[in-house]
């Protein structure tokens, strides 16, 4: 949930996550904009359970997503218009 008081958000942008359009503002991270949209589950752990932002400073790697084809930490990735995000649901390959 965005804090309104005392904050001027940057210009509005739209990016997509697994094909769904999500609104954000320049200056926000993908992880934060997704949280504001009520989107907490960003990934699956190896056992299949959902994972979201945890350390939110780029260490724990729980929030990694594919952003325009590259693995990125959602908590550190700035939103921009037209960014294409896909979530990763990786399980053992064999």
């Amino acid at each position: 949930m965005r804090i309104a008081a005392g904050v001027e958000r940057g210009p509005a942008v739209t990016f997509s996550v697994d094909g769904v359009a999500v609104a954000g503002h320049i200056g926000e991270t993908v992880g934060a904009a997704l949280l504001a949209a009520g989107w907490r589950d960003l990934r699956s752990g190896p056992g299949g359970g959902g994972r979201g932002m945890f350390c939110a400073i780029g260490v724990c790697q729980e929030c990694v997503v594919m952003a325009d084809g590259v693995v990125r930490e959602a908590c550190r990735l700035p939103v921009r218009d037209g960014l294409v995000i896909t979530t990763r649901r990786l399980r053992d390959v064999r």
């Binding site: 190896p46 990786l90 399980r91 053992d92 390959v93 064999r94």
Partner: peptide, 8 residues
């Protein structure tokens, strides 16, 4: 030497 482990 390249391979993918069972865990990916």
């Amino acid at each position: 030497s390249l391979k993918q482990s069972d865990n990916g």
